[in-house]
Design a binder for these strands. Structure first.
Length: 576
RNA sequence: GAUCGCGUAGCUCAGCUGGUAGAGCAAGCGGCUUUUAACCGCUAGGUCCUGGGUUCGAGCCCCAGCGCGAUCACCA
């Protein structure tokens, strides 16, 4: 079933849930790009030279310059004050969440009362008993009330207000505070208290510029809504859209939890080549690259399968690999040209052991998502998680349905009824309905009529595909026309397949050869027989179960992300 | 690759039947010691994605291109 992984990136087109958060288009990417390209020119002009009628620039660049000039003027002013606007190491920083957690209402009240009593009694102000914190973050709000300035900082743990009063800091520090811009990175120290309105804040007695931001920021309230800028300039998206960092924190924790789960089951994580002399393991179109010194054409891997199976031959009984695959194919909400998958092989297992493993793993992940351990968009409440307008119930056991049974339910006649299959295919206007092989029509009808019956809100294993459409999978011993293969569907997406692996080298060779002869011209140009893999099989591979899971799609499901681009830090975009 | 939609100020968005380009926030100046999308006054900011065309006149209509999005195709 060497080629089975190809289907890993296939999504059913029917039951994809809709998401309420629609993102509208707005432009400005080009202006932002100009801002970047114009950077040097701007700094030279802005710093010293009055603009002359001669320095004609596109009006957009002029207007952009205004915003940047204002920021550079502040930069210069900081240096005049003897302040270095690009800071240095700070020890003992608290996260904004930790600083917020340090707040204590009783301590704060006691301090206020003591201060008030001292003032009324004419005594000197008592020592401030509230906890101290030093924090740092990016400025996301700035309110200047004259002799009092409120600033909201943001870091990866959240937002926190810093309050600076003219009476509480020296003159230079207060000038810095008044001149802060949205986007600046600052550090502040002080006692953690709250304002009259109940907002927890650091009452700063120190405030330093750590990085003066020179770029015009996105809207402080609306943030970035243009998906193009969100993906192209992810570093802006990450502070403008707090959910972005939460989603990627969740992704990291999910992948980490998958590793822990696999290790707890005794699997060994391995790393196999991502540059392959022979494109194998899936039938997808590969990317080509080249090694100069060896003058060798290489393929970016489309699947690690053939290497992982060599490890079974070599004597590693339980292995997994979490890493990238590269497929030179279309791009949509559930496909990115490079994507992360986990492949698993277990000697002396089969597709049944892979089913139990997958079900336990995903259930465990969903339970933890329900407990909000991912910190992402997941909803509380256990193994039922929101995904768009769906509530996906991850409770065990997942639905299991045999291909043959679902076919019968959907079409009303058995898949072996050749006459009715052909008639039905013609009625459904399936391509080549009068010429194609019976089993190809069965497969087409299944996709057309049966897959839509799968409940998108319940993870569903479709198992026991016809051998004729699973040429590289091991047939069932009891029923050779049935292949020991399943595909897991959730929310209309295919999450991954599993197989009872073929380990008879002669059958494997025959199937490879058959498949190569059937390949079309385009595919044929990158395909060749992996002789060494066949040699490995002749050395002897134990019977095994094999599994592939699309990690990006699992993260989408667990973080309620409508597109794969929201769970990939830097998704591929067309060159501007 | 195909079809449809979108592209207007730094950001978020209005813009009538084709008739001189608008708001909020951001920015600059001034005011304000407890703000919560702070508020008040003033100022500045535009190649309406690009290139053609129609028209007396185009942000708006037509054609082509670019980018993004959606749907489809590809993904044995």
């Amino acid at each position: 079933m060497v080629c089975g992984r190809a289907s890993l990136v296939r999504a059913s087109r029917r039951s994809y849930p809709s998401f309420s958060r629609t993102i509208r288009c707005a432009p400005m990417a080009s202006l932002l790009a100009m801002a970047l390209q114009d950077h040097t020119a701007v700094s030279e002009h802005a710093a010293n030279q009055p603009s002359t009628p001669d320095d004609t620039q596109a009006p957009t660049a002029e207007s952009l310059r205004e915003l940047e000039v204002a920021r550079r003027a502040k930069l210069d002013r900081l240096r005049e004050l003897g302040v270095e606007p690009f800071g240095q190491r700070i020890d003992g920083l608290a996260t904004l969440a930790d600083a917020r957690a340090a707040f204590s209402e009783p301590v704060h009240l006691a301090h206020e009362e003591a201060a008030k009593a001292a003032k009324e009694g004419g005594a000197p102000a008592p020592a401030d008993s509230r906890p101290r914190a030093t924090v740092a973050g990016r400025v996301v709000q700035h309110r200047d009330l004259g002799k009092l300035v409120f600033v909201w900082l943001r870091d990866s743990t959240g937002d926190l207000q810093v309050s600076i009063s003219k009476a509480g800091v020296d003159a230079t520090t207060f000038e810095i505070a008044k001149a802060l811009d949205y986007g600046d990175v600052v550090a502040a120290s002080g006692h953690v208290g709250r304002t009259n309105r109940g907002e927890v804040c650091v009452w700063a007695d120190g405030l330093t510029m750590q990085s003066k931001s020179l770029e015009p920021p996105p809207s402080k309230w609306h943030g970035l809504t243009d998906p193009e800028i969100r993906y192209r300039r992810r570093y802006v998206d990450m502070f403008a859209t707090p959910q972005t960092i939460k989603t990627f924190q969740a992704r990291s924790r999910i992948v980490s939890a998958i590793r822990r789960f696999m290790e707890s089951r005794g699997f060994l994580e391995v790393e196999t080549p991502m540059m392959h002399p022979i494109a194998g393991g899936a039938a997808a179109r590969p990317f080509l690259t080249h090694h100069n010194t060896l003058d060798m054409q290489l393929f970016m891997r489309v699947a690690p399968e053939l290497y992982l199976k060599r490890l079974l031959v070599g004597g590693m009984p339980k292995v997994f690999e979490i890493n990238r695959n590269f497929r030179n194919e279309g791009v949509d909400r559930s496909h990115n040209p490079e994507f992360t998958s986990m492949e698993v092989y277990e000697a002396f297992g089969d597709y049944g052991t892979m089913m139990e493993l997958t079900e336990s793993l995903l259930h465990e992940l969903a339970v933890q998502a329900g407990a909000e351990q991912w910190g992402g968009g997941a909803t509380a409440g256990g193994p039922t998680l929101a995904f768009g307008d769906l509530s996906i119930n991850w409770g065990k056991p997942f639905v299991r349905v045999r291909f043959e049974d679902l076919f019968l339910r959907a079409l009303g006649f058995p898949m072996r009824d050749e006459a009715r299959v052909r008639a039905s295919a013609k009625a459904a206007h399936i391509d080549g309905a009068d010429k194609k092989d019976h089993w190809l029509l069965v497969e087409a009808l299944f996709e057309e009529k049966a897959e839509p019956l799968i409940d998108p809100a319940r993870p569903t294993f479709v198992m026991d595909y016809p051998s004729a459409v699973s040429p590289l999978t091991r047939p069932s011993r009891a029923q050779p026309e049935i292949a020991e293969r399943w595909d897991l569907f959730v929310a209309g997406m295919e999450i991954g397949p599993a197989y009872t692996e073929l380990n008879d080298p002669d059958i494997q060779l025959a199937k490879f050869t058959e498949q190569l002869s059937g390949a079309d011209d385009e595919i044929d140009t990158f395909r060749s027989l992996d002789e060494d893999f066949l040699t490995a099989l002749r050395v002897g591979m134990p019977p095994a179960g094999g599994l592939g899971l699309g990690i990006d799609r699992i993260v989408m499901l667990l973080t309620n992300s409508s597109t794969i681009r929201d769970v990939i830090l830097f998704p591929l975009l067309r060159r501007q």
